[in-house]
């Protein structure tokens, strides 16, 4: 055998170049907003960190409490739900950003802010793209991403694919399922609203049509800090309002363009990266990975070229070997 590394890489790179350059014009676009998209708007400046949304979430989705260090300390169980992060019993989690003295809320330096982490319900979800069995389904009309436990094979590709680290897996169970926020679609179908928005006392989390939420978010960004504004509570078009002064927002709606757009959008006075939200390109990961994959394997041209190259290289080196002898 006399295949030189050099020859191998030559052929390999030739194959890759042919495959990628010739087909890039057919890149799959990032999917757009579903026609009747619903969503959630989380405004961190209104959040008081009371965790009512977590209680609402667990009530609506019948998830158990998570045994915590606090319970450990007091020697009790089942009274205090205090998971440290999103987990297989927690689809919605309030976390806190702290800096320095953490004296003032909604300030980056020497301040603090809360953030509500849950599924973003992307327009073009990476989890759905990565799922080999179509167990994760993006509703074609309303756009929430739901999970079908009967289709799931338990490969957990979705966990690796999701850049927000949302899907969680029931490792402790004999017949485990995947756990992620499904936007309380079972309640929405009955005409209700999500548990988090229903429980939230301040209007930090509101439910509504995504277009309305986006318009509301844009309106809030244009308000003058310090002015009073009537914030809707529970839903974007609610009659229940809560008047309070406007904080100085970061001029950005997180989720508007991140990863091609999402149906859970956020406003904050502290940079989103500080709240643990990743910086994302405006195209989805799924569009890139699918373009690459589908191009490489399109009509099996890429693999054939690669295989052909390898056959040629093998043949040539074998021939050379034979002449040497």
């Amino acid at each position: 055998m006399n295949l030189q590394r050099r020859d191998f890489f030559k052929v390999l790179s030739a194959g890759v170049i042919t495959a990628t350059t010739s087909r890039s014009a057919q890149a799959r676009p990032t999917f757009k907003q579903p026609p009747d998209a619903v969503g959630l708007l989380y405004d961190a400046t209104l959040c008081i960190g009371c965790k009512a949304c977590e209680v609402g979430c667990k009530t609506r989705n019948e998830k158990p409490n998570v045994h915590s260090e606090i319970e450990e300390y007091f020697g009790v169980s089942g009274v205090w739900d205090d998971s440290r992060d999103l987990d297989s019993a927690t689809m919605n989690k309030i976390k806190v950003y702290k800096n320095g003295t953490a004296a003032v809320k909604d300030r980056e330096i020497d301040g603090f802010s809360f953030v509500k982490r849950a599924c973003m319900h992307c327009f073009d979800p990476d989890c759905q793209s990565a799922c080999p069995t179509s167990a994760l389904i993006k509703d074609p009309v309303k756009g929430y991403v739901t999970y079908d436990k009967d289709a799931c094979c338990g490969c957990r590709y979705c966990q690796v694919a999701c850049q927000y680290l949302i899907p969680k897996f029931e490792y402790h169970k004999a017949l485990p399922e995947l756990v992620k926020c499904e936007m309380c679609n079972h309640i929405l179908e009955e005409g209700g609203i999500t548990g988090c928005a229903e429980w939230c006392p301040t209007g930090a989390t509101i439910y509504g049509k995504l277009d309305d939420l986006m318009a509301e978010a844009r309106k809030r960004l244009e308000l003058k800090p310090g002015d009073r504004y009537s914030f809707s509570v529970h839903t974007v078009d609610s009659d229940e309002k809560k008047s309070r002064p406007v904080e100085k927002y970061i001029d950005h709606i997180y989720g508007e363009k991140e990863g091609g757009g999402a149906q859970y959008i956020m406003l904050s006075a502290v940079p989103f990266q500080k709240l643990g939200l990743p910086e994302m390109p405006e195209t989805s990961g799924a569009s890139k990975s699918e373009t690459l994959q589908h191009t490489l394997y399109k009509g099996l041209i890429g693999p054939i070229i690669l295989l052909g190259g390898m056959v040629v290289a093998t043949y040539r080196s074998t021939k050379k070997h034979q002449t040497d002898e």
Partner: peptide, 12 residues
């Protein structure tokens, strides 16, 4: 309350 980045988790 949990920090933005929690080192210890119960899964995932």
């Amino acid at each position: 309350y949990p920090d933005i980045v929690e080192e210890k988790t119960t899964g995932g």
